[in-house]
Design a protein around this nucleic acid. Structure first.
Length: 297
DNA sequence: TCATGTCAAGCGCTG
DNA sequence: CAGCGCTTGACATGA
């Protein structure tokens, strides 16, 4: 399966727009509080259902939802929301659609989610973030499996990789069963950070799978080919079909961009990657980029 | 309605 | 050493 993250450009441009990333600023949350958070969450979940339905109609069965599905969820429990029952009902319909259509849904908490941080506050916020993503997956009614994953980066070294790996494993141990069972960890896009072999080593014994990002591997290859790194990561998934990320550098497409920047429309996903994993196409072209890649076969 | 500046949260790195 | 970029856009204000 091929998929795309977050926004669907086609549906975003409708009037009214369909999107599941309605958010608000701190001052607005302070002013309007739970009722407005509830209203936004309900609209977001309703639109998530429409996006999933559109995806199914267009043969796209893999989707990553944004982390603003329930805005400000770090500040309350889902059950505190005035519209909780309505939200739950729509979430269940999303789950039924996903089951019926054989779809795959994942999440990717924001950049500040740093489970191995050397700051206890940052670690606590990060654990909390993984937990509320797990609450959403429970609400939708999806299995507690990395198949419906919550994907994070370690994303830093704090000057000591061994100590960072240990803090990461400790954080994993503090997660609830539902959060822990869904966690996946992706290789970073900076030479100094976490490569596939380093993650495999750091996570050995935890059961947490390594999510292989093809483009990022170029920055942390450690002498391994793409296929070697993918094979290494795939072993960590056990019986679960791996999820992977694919993108191409914008530079390959002539842009004067930093090497890490994504091309708007990547060309062709390697056949071996498509055959052996579900591939999230990370590109500004979003759903159109999936169509473009599909047309190249 | 639209343009513009700003926005909760962490990091490493660049200019 | 400030600001950028990530997995990236949207909110809020004022004309």
């Amino acid at each position: 399966m091929l998929g795309y993250p977050c926004m669907n450009h086609t549906l975003r441009e409708r009037d009214p727009p369909l999107r599941c990333n309605r958010d608000m600023r701190k001052a607005t949350f302070a002013e309007r509080g739970l009722p407005y958070a509830s209203e936004l969450a309900l609209q977001n979940v309703e639109d998530l259902h429409e996006i999933l339905a559109w995806n199914a109609d267009h043969g796209i069965r893999f989707y990553r939802c944004t982390s603003t599905l329930v805005p400000w969820n770090s500040q309350f429990d889902l059950t505190d929301l005035p519209d909780y029952e309505a939200i739950r009902a729509v979430a269940e319909r999303c789950g039924e659609l996903i089951e019926r259509e054989g779809m795959r849904l994942t999440f990717h908490p924001d950049y500040w989610c740093r489970l191995a941080s050397d700051s206890a506050d940052t670690r606590a916020n990060s654990v909390e973030a993984v937990e509320y993503h797990a609450d959403w997956l429970d609400l939708i009614g999806l299995d507690r499996s990395p198949y419906y994953g919550i994907n994070v980066h370690i994303g830093a070294t704090y000057g000591d990789k061994a100590a960072t790996a240990e803090r990461f494993r400790d954080a994993v141990d503090t997660l609830s069963p539902g959060a822990r069972a869904r966690l996946t960890v992706e290789n970073d896009d900076k030479e100094s950070l976490w490569s596939v072999p380093e993650l495999v080593d750091a996570l050995s014994g935890t059961g947490v799978p390594v999510l292989f990002d093809y483009h990022h591997h170029a920055f942390t290859d450690r002498g391994l080919t793409y296929r070697e790194a993918f094979d290494l990561a795939t072993e960590t998934w056990g019986d679960v079909r791996p999820a992977t990320h694919y993108s191409e550098s914008a530079r390959l497409h002539g842009a004067d961009a930093r090497p890490q920047a994504h091309a708007e429309f990547p060309g062709r996903v390697p056949t071996w990657l498509r055959e052996r994993s579900d591939v999230m196409i990370e590109a500004d072209g979003k759903e159109q980029a999936v169509f473009g890649v599909r047309d190249n076969y």
